[in-house]
Design a binder for these strands. Structure first.
Lengths: 245, 245
DNA sequence: TAGTGGTCTAGACCACAAA
DNA sequence: TTGTGGTCTAGACCACTAA
């Protein structure tokens, strides 16, 4: 049993807090595939929320394929499938765990910069407006995997660069300390050649191919918050998705 | 106003009946893109169901992209969007039209080859089994855009290489002449460097970055039919998709 | 019969947009 | 200030599973 509780004075909705809690338990393997999850009634009791709220969270976990429900029997953790990946926003940490790596992070840079015309347009702000740039080197099993350059609209999260992002997950800081949840994103995927600094940081040969992702993430209020550039080592990383007719 | 009503004695849940009603109105254009949908409270009144039930239905329509909601303003019919590209299987022709190019095709190769161990595994067949290889150079506005190498399980579509695939769409041939519809696919996306032959065909510099897609497509009977490799010029082509929390 | 998830209700209070 | 969607509650009754 954990000590997770719903923070009843937080601006974060109960259903979101409860989702984080239950999702984590499944991800972290606290409940194993096939295990029965506590009955809805028990979750109502344990977290002191209404059954509707519990069911809202469970429905989302079902949609995402983490659990399945059987009337009259209970709710159970799904057996692992290949799915998800490319339609859900997931953290680097979760992504690496899914791929069987141990994630790590080195902070490369954290400073305030003026928005370029290019980025300003993507974030619906004015050129020159203040951005928090947070650059991180991401590791998988201790070896460089990717470079992430996050550009945050600073007036939405003042002083955000004071956090230690080699340790604190960015999404968690935004959620807990600024009430900002990134619920939606649009991204473009390209193949590019590494520039010398990238080659050095990622420990690859000069002019190696990289998978580049440019992503604009929106808050629960549909306001663009972050422009993120990720550069993945192509010898270690590829994307997977499924298509339908 | 229509005469649709919830059948209160049907076994079909109210939320399902209401979904059918509202979905139909959007599909049939009774409400146009941008139109405001009656407020939740009005739907409660009109259909004599609770607000929870109305919201359950609306949430599904939002998830499916038919409507969007704005707090304080109302709910509205979505404008048709281009943006489902990355989760739907679309033809090169359709893709190019969406991107504003005029598509073209040159046949590079069409022959029978034995399946490699690698490809046999992906297609659930035995190594050495016969494959139809169809290689095409794809053009956009007359300039090279990509190379496609299609490997078809030959016993599912005998003599398929006799068609002129510079003119006949492969999917159309499979559907009309072999009764095979490709309804589902899994793909992997990578960044690679071009090899000399690719550079020559695509008219790009040696060792340029390419976006490579490897796709296995399944028929309506869930049988793997095609292993497709696509190499896109990265200076002309990028992928786009949307993510959700 | 006891326990589970499936459906549904009638309210409440809040945050936000527009007048 | 009014009307909208966003969140949450405390119940109710049903259908199904397993003992």
């Amino acid at each position: 049993m954990t000590t997770d509780k719903i923070n009843r004075h937080s601006k974060v909705p109960f259903y979101h807090q409860l989702y984080e809690i239950l999702h984590n338990r499944v991800i972290k393997g606290e409940w194993k595939p096939g295990d029965m999850i506590p009955a809805e009634i028990d979750l109502v009791e344990a977290y002191k929320v209404s059954r509707n709220t519990v069911r809202q969270v469970m429905s989302r976990l079902v949609d995402e394929g983490f659990i399945y429900r059987q009337r009259g029997r209970g709710s159970f953790v799904s057996h692992p499938s290949l799915e998800h990946s490319m339609s859900r926003i997931i953290s680097f940490t979760e992504d690496m765990h899914q791929r069987g790596f141990e994630p790590g992070t080195q902070l490369l840079n954290a400073q305030l910069i003026p928005a370029s015309i290019d980025i300003a347009e993507k974030l619906h702000i004015l050129p020159g407006e203040e951005l928090a740039l947070i650059a991180r080197l991401r590791l998988a099993d201790g070896e460089p995997m990717s470079i992430e350059e996050s550009h945050l609209v600073h007036n939405r999260c003042p002083n955000v660069i004071c956090y230690d992002f080699s340790r604190s997950p960015l999404r968690q800081v935004l959620s807990h300390d600024y009430g900002i949840r990134l619920v939606y994103a649009r991204q473009v995927i390209r193949a590019i050649l590494s520039i010398p600094e990238q080659s050095r940081l990622l420990k690859i040969l000069p002019r190696s191919p990289l998978l580049q992702i440019e992503r604009v993430s929106y808050s629960q209020d549909d306001i663009p918050i972050e422009f993120l550039k990720i550069f993945y080592r192509s010898d270690r990383y590829s994307l997977y998705n499924e298509l339908h007719d």
